[in-house]
Simulated scan of single mutants.
Amino acid sequence: MRLTGQVYRAHHPRWAFAPASGQGAALHGGRFNPKGLAALYTSRRLETAWLEAQQAFPFKAQPMTLCAYEVDCADVADLTDPAERSRLGIAEADLACAWEDIAARGAIPPSWDLALRLLAAGASGILVRSFAAAAGPRDVNAVFWRWADAPPHRVRAVDDADRLPKDDSSWR
């Protein structure tokens, strides 16, 4: 499918100068990317972006930079659609797996396996329900493995007023 419109991401302010890098995910890994594979985790709603960013801080909300992204991205697999999951041979349990525990044991989480399989088949990203605590049916994420500033895989941070910093010098 082709995903168009806006998505959102709340991230550590330290990285405000590179809101579309995906390097944090490459460094640490994530639910849908093993270490070494860059990924850009975004959400379809502002509220979901905030929920996702605060998972590690359940009692105190931490400062975040909230960005909107313009999207015109082809080759996105809609894993919120049961028929699409069935067609692709993806079980809901693979999406919801305890990926961190599995990876910590030295095994490959099913969610990494499906991400690598979809990427190899030409997918640029996925739509998938949020697994954040308190997430509901409206909380959907868009995870990108291939993105650029222009179509067919456009995912570009909105910064028309040029407010984002150009480098990380404010953090030294």
Rank of each mutant, 00 (worst) to 15 (best):
V7H: 05
A133E: 08
A107N: 14
L66F: 11
H153S: 12
L127H: 10
E100S: 15
D167L: 11
P137T: 11
W15E: 06
C97M: 02
H28S: 14
R105E: 08
C97H: 04
S111I: 04
G29Q: 02
S124W: 05
I90H: 00
I102L: 03
L46G: 05
A132G: 14
L46D: 01
T65F: 03
N33K: 10
L119N: 05
L79H: 00
P151S: 07
T4V: 10
Y8D: 00
D139H: 15
G125R: 03
F144W: 04
S21L: 08
A135R: 09
H28Q: 09
R163Q: 12
L114M: 13
Q62A: 13
L79Q: 00
L119T: 01
A132S: 15
D81V: 10
Q6C: 12
K60C: 12
A39Q: 07
L118Q: 01
I102Q: 01
V76R: 06
A38P: 15
Q55W: 03
A74Q: 08
P137V: 10
S111W: 00
R154E: 09
W99A: 01
H153N: 13
G29N: 10
N33P: 13
L66W: 04
A91M: 06
R45I: 04
D159L: 05
A10T: 08
A134P: 01
A103P: 06
L119D: 03
A26Y: 11
A61D: 11
P63Y: 10
T4M: 04
N141T: 02
R138N: 13
P165R: 06
R14V: 14
L46R: 14
L79S: 02
E70L: 06
